[in-house]
């Protein structure tokens, strides 16, 4: 769990906001609106994009060619956001996304990054011991599957297109989307049918 901010930081934030307001730079209403706007983005958007790609070959092609355009097609405004790239998992290749330098994350389609994504341990180990990191989520890749780790940057953000699990034939988009978690979109887990069905 992230530690709460220290009292000096809380006091600095109060002074900083007061100074910005005094200079006419921001208003309390603008801050509240911005928080509300950011809160609306969530991994459900990314999950819907994946579910559509699983059922609609034309959308899949667009998603892999131009992730930002595919997000816009789902009604997400990507204005001002860095381009979104989408990494296609296959029978022989799995992707894992990290930002070793900071916390770059496709926020428009996944919401706020989780604390662990920003942690020193994840950033350091995802590139050195990625299979060990996956094991902490209980994710074990089949023998022989290549694992490619991709570093997100300030200028380009990545999301994983996992493989559609077996046993989902005939499922509609909504049901398929329910299998796709935030963690699967980063690549630390795989979409699972049995686990969800039992839940």
């Amino acid at each position: 769990m992230a530690a709460p901010p220290g009292p000096e930081s809380i006091a600095l934030l109060e002074r900083f906001v007061a100074a910005l307001k005094a200079q006419g730079v921001v208003t309390e209403e603008e801050i509240a609106e911005q928080i509300a706007r950011t809160d609306r983005a969530s991994p459900e958007i990314g999950a819907r994009m994946v579910a559509r790609a699983w059922t609609d070959p034309a959308y899949r092609e667009l998603l892999l060619r131009d992730g930002s355009a595919a997000a816009e097609q789902m009604g997400v405004s990507m204005a001002g956001a860095p381009p979104l790239g989408v990494l296609e998992d296959t029978d022989t290749l799995h992707h894992l996304v990290v930002c070793t330098l900071c916390s770059c994350y496709p926020r428009m389609v996944l919401g706020y990054p989780p604390h662990w994504y920003k942690s020193a341990a994840y950033r350091a180990r995802a590139v050195r011991d990625p299979r060990g990191v996956l094991a902490e989520w209980g994710t074990v890749l089949p023998d022989g599957m290549e694992l490619r780790v991709v570093d997100s940057t300030a200028d380009y953000r990545w999301m994983v297109l996992p493989q559609r699990p077996a046993g989902t034939e005939g499922w509609d988009e909504t049901r398929l989307a329910s299998l796709v978690t935030r963690d699967a979109l980063v690549g630390v887990t795989l979409p699972m049918v049995a686990e969800r069905a039992a839940a």
């Binding site: 330098l101 919401g111 341990a121 180990r125 011991d129």
Partner: peptide, 27 residues
């Protein structure tokens, strides 16, 4: 520049943390 940094080699990643930051972070 933490990619591969050995000092965190044995630090576990705590996977179950919730995403939304606290009020301070959101602000």
């Amino acid at each position: 520049d933490l990619g591969g940094a050995p000092r965190f080699r044995c630090t576990p990643v705590e996977p179950d943390d919730a995403a939304p930051p606290d009020a301070f972070g959101k602000r």
